[in-house]
Amino acid sequence: MLAKIYQPAKSAMQSGVGKTRTWVLEFVPASARWIDPLMGWTGSGDMDSQVTLRFPTREEAVEYAERYGIPFELFEPNKRVPVVRPNGYGDNFAYFRRTAWTH
């Protein structure tokens, strides 16, 4: 029952960083999923794969796993570099804008 601890990346549908500051503990699936021949639904006998625990910090997630004897693998996040372009779209509405609106 191996668990992975990671900080989720932002969704491709969002430009902000909402729901990416927490740390997640998820269990790695112990068995493969199968497809039901009658209905075509995907099924699994692994109940641990349905458990997702969220923690405010990495240390709390690691402490929880160690306290309950859960073997885990820790994945460090890749930090985003903010893209700030000079004279970008936001400068159209800046308070220091001295020229008239052109369009």
Rank of each mutant, 00 (worst) to 15 (best):
M1Y: 03
M1E: 10
A3C: 00
I5V: 03
I5G: 11
Y6P: 01
Y6E: 01
A9G: 03
A9Q: 10
A9T: 13
A12N: 08
Q14N: 06
Q14G: 03
S15N: 12
T22L: 04
W23A: 08
V24E: 01
L25Q: 01
E26D: 10
E26N: 05
P29I: 05
P29V: 08
A32G: 06
A32W: 07
D36A: 10
D36I: 08
D36F: 00
P37R: 07
P37D: 01
S44Y: 02
S44A: 07
G45E: 11
D46W: 03
S49G: 02
S49L: 07
V51N: 02
V51L: 14
T52D: 10
L53R: 02
L53H: 04
R54A: 12
T57G: 04
E59C: 00
E59A: 15
E59R: 09
E60G: 11
A61K: 02
V62L: 10
E63C: 11
I70F: 04
I70C: 02
F72P: 01
L74Q: 13
L74M: 10
N78Q: 06
K79P: 05
K79V: 14
K79Q: 12
P82N: 08
P86Y: 05
P86L: 12
P86V: 10
N87A: 15
N87H: 10
G88Y: 08
Y89C: 13
G90R: 13
G90L: 07
D91I: 06
D91V: 12
N92R: 14
N92A: 13
N92L: 15
F93D: 07
A94D: 07
Y95P: 08
F96L: 10
R98Y: 11
T99F: 13
A100G: 08
A100C: 11
W101S: 12
W101F: 13
T102C: 12
H103N: 14
H103D: 10
H103K: 13
